[in-house]
Design a protein around this nucleic acid. Sequence first.
DNA 1: GCTTTTGGTAGCATGTTGCAACCAGACAGT
DNA 2: ACTGTCTGGTTGCAACATGCTACCAAAAGC
Lengths: 152, 152
Amino acid sequence: MVTRTRFDDSDCPVARSVDAIGDWWSLLIVRDAFDGSRRFGEFQRSLGVAKNILTARLRALVAGGVLESVPASDGSAYREYVLTPKGKALFPVIVALRQWGEEHFFAAGEPHSQLVDRRQGHDLRALEVRAADGRRLDPDDTVVRYVSETSA
Amino acid sequence: MVTRTRFDDSDCPVARSVDAIGDWWSLLIVRDAFDGSRRFGEFQRSLGVAKNILTARLRALVAGGVLESVPASDGSAYREYVLTPKGKALFPVIVALRQWGEEHFFAAGEPHSQLVDRRQGHDLRALEVRAADGRRLDPDDTVVRYVSETSA
DNA sequence: GCTTTTGGTAGCATGTTGCAACCAGACAGT
DNA sequence: ACTGTCTGGTTGCAACATGCTACCAAAAGC
């Protein structure tokens, strides 16, 4: 069969994450969820995505435990989609993508949406990869190891 | 026309990043590049991706400035693909996805590849989103602001 | 010079995406 | 209760992307 390749059984966590998110729309839905969107219509207007796609993605995200469909919120009989703890754990991923995009895809002074500290309105600090002892690590300072058993 | 929707003119850096990476294969190619893969065949064997897809993705990543095609390295006449500085800047994105995957898609004790500090062999510290002044920030502590002009 | 490896290209079947049209249940006004 | 509108979808179709297999040319190896 010629299905899109799945990575859900890969031994690499990156691959499983990628597989769980599903596609780019899903990531932008999550981004909007962090930004406060909750209703189908909000996502739809914000993203400009076709409604069937949005339906499928929301369903997949709910099935994957990233979003949760809660019955109400303002008293109406409609449903809303909110991030689960697992979904909120994607925050660093979104922030990392945002910072990469800000750095490399915008001309100086070009307007763009910005994620700021709510309390002070300042831009965030750049993400830093650190070792267990706190040293900053560059890609070259790390190596991938294949663990057959955890020796916890 | 019914092409895949592009986000390269979005005002959201997350969307532009997503658009620049292109698809999941590209991200896994970048992951492998961080892991030391350089040659076409290395990527192909590691990922199990069809060669035409790999060709297209490598080309796109080179065009996007994420990878660079350098003429040699071991004296042979073949080409190799190495990360540009822009590509290396994706490191936090990969690490964030890896940590999310490790946390949510592996049973305790289930074997998986692990990214460790080369010097000490320890697991990395979890990424933390921080404000300019160093406070740790949760998603709720941040807000997206649309900036029409930079007041730099 | 012959074989193997490397790094692709070409063609085809199928899956996925995107658009537009349609539709049912909630909500609001009267 | 009746009507119109908004919300939140579903359905069908056409185009595009993905994945597989087969094929191929240049470089390496012998």
